[in-house]
Amino acid sequence: MNTIEVNNKAEIFSTEIRGEIDQWVAKYPADWKQSAVMAALRIVQDANGGWLTTELMNDVAAYLDMAPIAVYEVATFYSMYELKPVGKHKICICTNVSCMINNSDRVVDHLEDRLGIKLGQTTEDGRFTLKEVECLGACGGAPMMQIGKQYYENLTPEIIDSILEGLE
């Protein structure tokens, strides 16, 4: 009911992705497959170069027997889902209070200068996206940023440079 009819769920996603989603589905009660929606969106987003298309969200809805709108609600509510293309490396810079008073402005300025883009933008070569984020819970290491799954703390322009140089 209310869902996208799909005859064969095995036609959605690759075997690997289905396997990963199924692992999450298994953590929740049998009639609460939808609990895996956040994980499914994350998995699908990672496999799609870091962002979600409407089609992918529809696929997740079909796979988890959800109404598509319920998936859109989730994907647009949580800040870690991207609904537009992002660079290979999404650089999330915390500018919240502890980071701000430890000069996160300098981190932002340095990255903007170095990459030639502003916050919210992606470099033309598609390698980097700069994103301003809220407190990431690492205030002891302010100023800090996250690239991919990794936290980088106590940032200075020099440290930032060496981090960027170490990225593919």
Partner: peptide
């Protein structure tokens, strides 16, 4: 016991 990962929402 399982972990559930959030998605970025205070």
């Amino acid at each position: 016991l399982h972990a559930h990962l959030g998605g970025g929402a205070y």
